[in-house]
Simulated scan of single mutants.
Amino acid sequence: MVAILDYLASFTFDDLTSLARFGAFALISLVIIVFSLLVVISRDAVRASIALIVSLFSVAGLYILLNAQFLGVVQILVYVGAVGVLIMFAVMLTKAETGRGPYVR
């Protein structure tokens, strides 16, 4: 959290590069907020897991933007790669049947 506040305090908007970096930071932050809310409010588990994967990718992009490339790569490999795929397979394999059974009216 302190690194993000230091990053925001370092903007001077003197050149086009810092303005582009601030725009990228704002866009990635907005994507993180929107997809994190979708994870929480989604009723379908598959859509929630896809929104979680997009949110975790965005966090990796934020790490890379903060010059922490190693953390960004680890975020993609561990969380998006392993945890995201594990959640997707768990949701797909435990999904209940939607067909009509003999006792369904």
Rank of each mutant, 00 (worst) to 15 (best):
S18I: 04
A82Y: 06
G61P: 00
Y79V: 12
N67D: 12
G61W: 03
R47I: 13
L62G: 05
T94K: 06
T98S: 09
V85I: 15
M88I: 15
A26K: 04
L77W: 01
A3V: 14
L16F: 01
S18E: 12
I32W: 06
V85L: 14
F89Q: 02
G72F: 04
I53L: 13
G84R: 02
L16E: 13
F35Y: 07
L65V: 12
Y103G: 01
V46I: 15
I53R: 00
S18T: 14
F11V: 10
E97A: 03
V54W: 00
S18L: 08
V80W: 05
S49L: 09
V34I: 11
V73C: 02
D15W: 00
L19K: 14
A9W: 15
P102W: 07
A48Y: 04
R43W: 00
M92A: 14
I53A: 13
K95Y: 03
G81A: 08
V104Y: 15
F22D: 05
Y79F: 12
Y79D: 09
L71Q: 03
F70D: 04
Y63C: 14
L71G: 06
I76K: 01
T17D: 06
L27G: 07
F57V: 15
F89M: 15
A96P: 14
A26H: 04
T98P: 05
L16C: 00
V46K: 07
A24V: 13
I28L: 14
S18Y: 05
V73K: 01
D15N: 12
A3C: 09
A96R: 14
Y79L: 04
D6Y: 09
R100M: 07
L37Q: 09
N67I: 01
S55W: 03
A68Y: 12
S55K: 00
A24M: 15
V40E: 04
L77Q: 02
A60E: 02
R105L: 12
A60D: 02
V85G: 00
T12A: 10
I41S: 13
M1F: 08
T94R: 08
K95W: 05
L77S: 07
A45T: 10
G81Q: 05
Y79C: 06
G61S: 08
G84D: 03
M92E: 01
Y79M: 03
L38D: 07
F25P: 08
G81L: 07
G23T: 11
L37Y: 08
R47D: 05
L56C: 14
I64H: 05
F25L: 14
S18C: 08
I32R: 00
F35T: 13
V80Q: 03
R100K: 13
Q69N: 12
T94W: 01
Y103K: 05
V54H: 06
Q69M: 08
V83N: 06
F35R: 02
F11A: 07
L38K: 14
I41D: 07
I50E: 00
V2P: 08
T94D: 03
D15S: 12
M1W: 05
S55V: 13
L30C: 10
L66I: 12
S10L: 09
V39H: 03
R105K: 11
I41Y: 09
V31A: 15
Y103R: 10
A60I: 11
V54S: 09
Y63F: 15
Q69H: 15
A68L: 14
S29R: 04
G81T: 08
V104T: 14
F57L: 12
A3S: 15
G23M: 06
L38H: 06
L19Q: 15
S18P: 07
I28D: 04
Y103S: 07
D6N: 08
I41L: 09
L71N: 10
